[in-house]
Structures are given as structure tokens and as C-alpha cells.
């Protein structure tokens, strides 16, 4: 499972968690999210996200 970060506001989409409140089930892979989906925090386009490796919280 990967994490993707919004380049504009820093919001992180975690494939493992999905976004149940937006109807995206846990485990939904990034490539399966619709292209017209937008960042829930700032409205940036899906194309404005990049994959990031995020270290486990200390």
C-alpha cells in the first residue's frame, strides 16, 4: 500500500485507509481513483499528487 501527497496543501492519501467519507473504500489503489477526483482539503487535481514514502510516526 502506498501513500500519495498533494503537492499543493500536503494532504496525504493513504491507500490502506482509503477515504470512506468520500466513498473510497480502504485499500483502494491510487490508479483506481477517478481522474476527476480532487483533493478533499484544497481541491487540487489528482494530477497534482505525488507518491511519497512517509516514515512511520515517531
Amino acid at each position: 500500500m502506498k501513500k500519495w501527497q498533494c503537492m499543493v496543501c500536503g494532504f496525504i492519501y493513504d491507500e490502506a485507509h482509503g477515504l470512506p467519507e468520500e466513498g473510497i473504500a480502504p485499500g483502494t489503489r491510487w490508479e483506481d481513483i477517478p481522474e476527476n477526483w480532487a483533493c478533499p482539503d484544497c481541491g487540487a487535481a489528482k494530477a497534482d499528487f505525488e507518491m511519497v514514502e512517509i516514515k512511520a510516526a515517531v
Binding site: C42, G43, A44, A45
Partner: peptide, 10 residues
């Protein structure tokens, strides 16, 4: 607000 800016910019 941010969201209107995103729509306007696009």
C-alpha cells in the same frame, strides 16, 4: 478561499 481559486485557475 482555496477551492474557488482552484476552479478559477483551471
Amino acid at each position: 478561499f482555496v477551492t474557488p481559486i482552484m476552479h478559477a485557475a483551471r
